[in-house]
Design a protein around this nucleic acid. Structure first.
Length: 636
RNA sequence: GCCGGCGUAGCUCAGCAGGCAGAGCAGCGGUUUCGUAAACCGCAGGCCGGAGGUUCGAAUCCUCCCGCCGGCUCCA
């Protein structure tokens, strides 16, 4: 007999060979066992001494096992339908799993159905999934014979003399495991998409065919997931942007990656910029402004032409001089700093600019507003003494969080990236900077992840990512030290000792880029912007044409009070039509003017939330809208 | 850049075993005067992304180009 602890905490005594039956009778969905703190196969031998803990597919670790097994079922099905396929890798990922294959003749999207059908057959066959140990030599020989050269490559990277394979029926795959007990457990599975993917993500290597799918413990789970995907699509800024007439990225003539801000989008951008400027002046920044192009010498000195050339647009040649569109603002800000001598008493200096830059991104990575080629960074450079570094970083991080929270963001992924193998600058400066970053993150009580050695060659950094509607992470805030440019431009200040000293330079963007931030903002609010950002804050709707002049009067009063208001008084439309239109445009306040309201000098207030507040004095409505806007409230 | 998919009216899309370019919404004209998510009738709207080819005939098949969408390590 052995002891197994179930997820609820209940402990049962079973004969090891009966475990699966016992669990089946209790309608449990086993994924694995934690034995000595390690997740193992359910089929593993149970320890005599300490109890094993059962992990079910309803727990996150268990679900991952289920999805990994689902990827094996996929590979099995593909192998049956395409016998000469080569297998690469097939892990579980965030919302499902994928498997990479090399096909002689890649399948098309229509074939997914057939493959899924074959998967269902394999599930119905309920084949036991069993592990086997092979010596490194046996494994290599086996993979060699099968021509599985991708697996062979993986094998070379595995440590240890023995490796594990998993077998289900006639399908065998090199795999670390663990796996569910049999293919019958992978019942609720769905193939979703098909895409190209380089072997090991390396553009110089073979292009494989990746098949994406998802698996859940229940049919309900799959349905719910598909529903979420639909919802995400509705929030997609690329769908909402044109629909709400916020922006466009037009083809052919204007070319990819360059954004046109339509009046309503620009209105929001202006609100964001106004808020941003005010906040920066309040926080001790000086706003500066710099040109869009600079002579080649500048980019030579900054090192951009040596290290960042592929990210830059080709030069413009004027009067025999080469000019480059700026990919970054830093050299200009440094030039402002260097325009005169600086005393230790002048520091810290904080230069901020909404600086528009151009970067030549590969066409395939362009993505709506989230990855573009021309964008405006909310950039700043902080130049300070060593003794000011700690305080400056704390301030900057606090400021970044303040900005993000003002727009309703609270879910962040924070990363601290440290010194890479190849770097410039003095190690002592790196240490001081890295510690300042770490202390600041900890002082703010943020959960963060350290990316060891993933800092830029010129300095350590903190990044803050926010997710889009499809769960993809995008970097907004970045706070990074730059030891490279400070040296290259020979930045200096005169210290108390009368000697020149090298200041610390910190490069930071809080919202990241206005384009990307706008894209994320659209998805965050699903297009329903809070009052202070809404391009149109209120519409005035006459019930019949009798009330048009009254509605015009109300519109004028709101406009004079500083509210962004539209009077829909062209006539010819029913109230039902007007209300629907206002809902579709996600306008926060609808002011209905009928005969009753006109007689009383009132309006009936309907909110975007569909709440009907009934007749109100016009002044009360004006006050309500203005106070919501001034407080930058995120709710109506 | 590479792999796969896609490109038809302002928008969303149908048409694609090769045979007269369509619908809904938006626009315009008229009728309706209406109380909280689409009143009714009519009109107009197109180099079917571009260029070349196959064919008696191409939106439809082929080639190239342009653009868009998804993906390109979350490491057996």
């Amino acid at each position: 007999m052995a002891r197994v602890v179930l997820p609820g905490g209940e402990s049962i005594e079973v004969e090891p060979e009966d475990l699966l039956d016992v669990l089946a009778r209790r309608k449990m969905r086993p994924a694995g066992l934690i034995i000595d703190g390690e997740l193992r196969d359910v089929r593993d031998p149970l320890p005599k001494t300490s109890p094993a803990r059962l992990v079910t597919v309803d727990e996150p670790e268990g679900l991952e096992v289920l999805r990994h097994s689902a990827s094996h079922v996929l590979a099995h099905a593909v192998r049956r339908l395409y016998p000469d396929v080569r297998l690469a890798i097939g892990p579980a990922i965030r919302d499902g799993f994928y498997y990479d294959f090399e096909f002689a003749q890649p399948p098309s999207r229509e074939d997914l159905e057939r493959i899924e059908g074959e998967m269902r057959r394999i599930v119905a066959e309920d084949l036991p999934i069993e592990r086997m140990w092979l010596s490194r030599e046996e494994a290599a020989q086996r993979l060699q014979e099968e021509g599985e050269h991708y697996k062979l490559e993986l094998l070379e990277e595995i440590e240890g003399d023995q490796v594990t394979f998993y077998r289900q029926g006639d399908f065998v795959d090199l795999c670390r495991g663990p796996h569910v007990a049999s293919t019958g457990h992978v019942r609720h599975v769905r193939l979703l998409d098909l895409a190209g993917a380089y072997w090991r993500g390396d553009a110089n290597r073979t292009m494989l065919t990746r098949i994406y799918g998802t698996a859940f413990p229940t049919a309900e789970g799959v349905k719910e997931h598909l529903r979420r995907l639909e919802e995400a699509k509705r929030r997609d800024h690329r769908v909402l942007g044109p629909k709400l007439d916020l922006f466009s990225i037009q083809n052919e003539e204007i070319r990819a990656g360059l954004v046109l801000w339509h009046p309503k989008g620009a209105r929001i951008r202006n609100e964001v910029e106004a808020f941003w400027k005010e906040a920066h002046y309040q926080n001790g920044y000086q706003l500066v402004s710099s040109p869009h192009i600079g002579r080649a010498q500048l980019w030579q000195r900054s090192g951009h032409l040596d290290f960042y050339r592929e990210g830059m647009y080709a030069p413009l040649v004027v009067e025999g001089q080469e000019f480059y569109l700026k990919p970054m603002n830093c050299p200009f800000h440094i030039a402002i700093y260097n325009s005169r001598g600086r005393s230790w008493r002048d520091l810290p200096i904080r230069y901020a600019e909404l600086g528009t830059v151009y970067r030549f991104e590969r066409s395939g990575v362009l993505h709506g507003l989230l990855r573009v080629r021309g964008f405006t960074q909310d950039d700043a450079h902080i130049i300070c003494r060593p003794d000011q570094v700690g305080e400056e970083i704390r301030r900057t991080l606090r400021f970044a969080l303040h900005m993000l929270r003002a727009f309703g963001f609270s879910d962040f992924a924070v990363y601290l990236s440290t010194r890479p193998a190849e770097y410039v600058g003095e190690p002592e400066r790196w240490d001081l900077a890295t510690e300042a970053l770490r202390e600041a993150v900890e002082a703010e009580g943020l959960a963060y992840q350290v990316k060891e050695g993933e800092g830029a060659f010129y300095g350590p950094k903190i990044d803050i990512d926010v997710e889009d509607s499809l769960g993809r992470a995008w970097q907004l805030t970045t706070i990074q030290f730059d030891f490279n440019l400070a040296d290259r431009f020979d930045m200096a200040y005169t210290g108390e000792d009368g000697q020149p000293h090298r200041p610390f330079m910190i490069h930071r963007a809080l919202l990241g880029a206005l384009e990307r931030f706008f894209g994320i903002l659209i998805e965050h609010y699903g297009g329903a912007f809070p009052v202070w950002l809404a391009p149109v804050q209120a519409v005035v709707l006459p019930v019949t044409e009798e009330q048009i002049s009254y509605a015009d009067e109300v519109t004028l009063r709101l406009a004079e009070a500083g509210i962004r208001v539209e009077g829909w008084t062209k006539g010819g439309k029913t109230l039902r039509w007007l209300v629907r239109q206002a809902q579709v445009e996600k306008i926060p306040y609808m002011l209905v003017c009928g005969a009753r309201e006109a007689a009383e000098g009132a309006v009936s207030l309907r909110l975007r939330t569909e709440e009907d507040l009934g007749p109100q004095p016009v002044d009360a409505v004006i006050t309500r809208i203005l106070s919501a806007a001034e407080a930058r409230e995120t709710e109506l």
